[in-house]
Design a binder for these strands. Sequence first.
DNA 1: CGACCACTTGAGCTCGCTCAAGACTAGTGG
DNA 2: CCACTAGTCTTGAGCGAGCTCAAGTGGTCG
Lengths: 240, 240
Amino acid sequence: MTAAAGAPLSLRFHAAGEWPDGTVDSAGDLILSPETDAALAAIAAPVSVKAKTSVFRQGDAAASVYLIRSGAMRVAHQLEDGRNQIVAFSWSGDLFGLADHGVYLNSADALTDCDLVEFSRPALKSLFLKEPQLQGDFLVEAIADLRMSQRHLLLVTHQRVTKRLAGFLVECARQPDCYDPKTGVLSLIMDRTDIADYLSTTVETVSRTIGALEEQRLMTRIDLRHVHLDLAGLQAMMVR
Amino acid sequence: MTAAAGAPLSLRFHAAGEWPDGTVDSAGDLILSPETDAALAAIAAPVSVKAKTSVFRQGDAAASVYLIRSGAMRVAHQLEDGRNQIVAFSWSGDLFGLADHGVYLNSADALTDCDLVEFSRPALKSLFLKEPQLQGDFLVEAIADLRMSQRHLLLVTHQRVTKRLAGFLVECARQPDCYDPKTGVLSLIMDRTDIADYLSTTVETVSRTIGALEEQRLMTRIDLRHVHLDLAGLQAMMVR
DNA sequence: CGACCACTTGAGCTCGCTCAAGACTAGTGG
DNA sequence: CCACTAGTCTTGAGCGAGCTCAAGTGGTCG
């Protein structure tokens, strides 16, 4: 995890969902006023992390909140019984660093090389006092995260793993970074274990279930990390 | 669902978790500045709903956000395949009314008679412009909701229903409204189907699992809706 | 007292977990 | 260029928790 030189940042906050006119741009990114943008940039520290390295661990003193400029992160929670539940995959424009009682609730690891922006919590807090409407932007982000968390809940509570996996693939295909709608090819950024930990199942079952979806012609493997999706078919099978 | 006469409201926002000094009071409720409190009260419409009635349905045009003054609500999402996943039980001090694309994402039903406060979204939006730091209070709420949603996720992803149920009982016992730490007696406000839909299992399994916990002496039934808990024991079994 | 609803109990079956091999991939060094 | 190795992924076989359907019990309200 290395600090990069501090050029102007032009921060992009991605806000999934719909918002009042003037809140988000055509790409679904938050529109910050020039003042808040400048104020944010003033306290923003660029950070680069290499793939498969950790940004922070669950239980660490929560010093910062992070914004992803490029790359993808894995946010996971380790339970006392040894389980490792992935709480979210986070993409460029997403914030991460949820904390409680002064410590991070989850661990954050880079899936790919990432460019991050680090905001120290105290700095953010005092900036909130100076630029109160900045809280509105973070509110929008928090609500977007809440929606994502509920979607995840609905996904993992499907009794049949086939449905969970289908839903997961559809979710992934919403990420422009890794899905090409022209070709229908999805790049899987994470390994089978990550998928299992996200869907709350086992590697073996993920492997077998991918096989099952292939037999149903709902997906085709190109190689381990690239698959062709039948999006309509996958969505249809979620209903049945 | 009836509107009550509009006396001064003294709104209480419950913010689970820890916050900077001066943000919450000893009961864990948000401290609003007198100005924001007054401004909020000006756009707040008191609403009373009777037990087992609906406040809004998933898909309805999202006109408002609601704060619970007293009582308990069930927030659930109906999936296309017929499943009914309870997303949260909400208690006094909680907000509900999550929306996207102008419609509610979930349905909200009263478990008990409830006193609510309704904030119209447009009114809230314009109030945010006048009182920007009010967004900070809603930010705190949204983050608290996000944490709860993640806790719920961790709960329902336990493979063994015994653990889910144990965790659920422990969660319930954190609600002062329905748990008496003196006697260790928990009042279950919801029926078995609700528990099943919250834990993503079936009524039958809930019933059997309650039996199993009783055999392990981790809980004792007083009647259908009242149980005595061995909190320490329940928490211990979550780990194994 | 009867009817309805919520809850419990029973029996069988199935999906997915577990443990255990085996196959494939990629990275390393001779 | 080809072993060698370590990590990842797949496949196999057996078992068990929980789902399903179905019947039975108990509480509540007219």
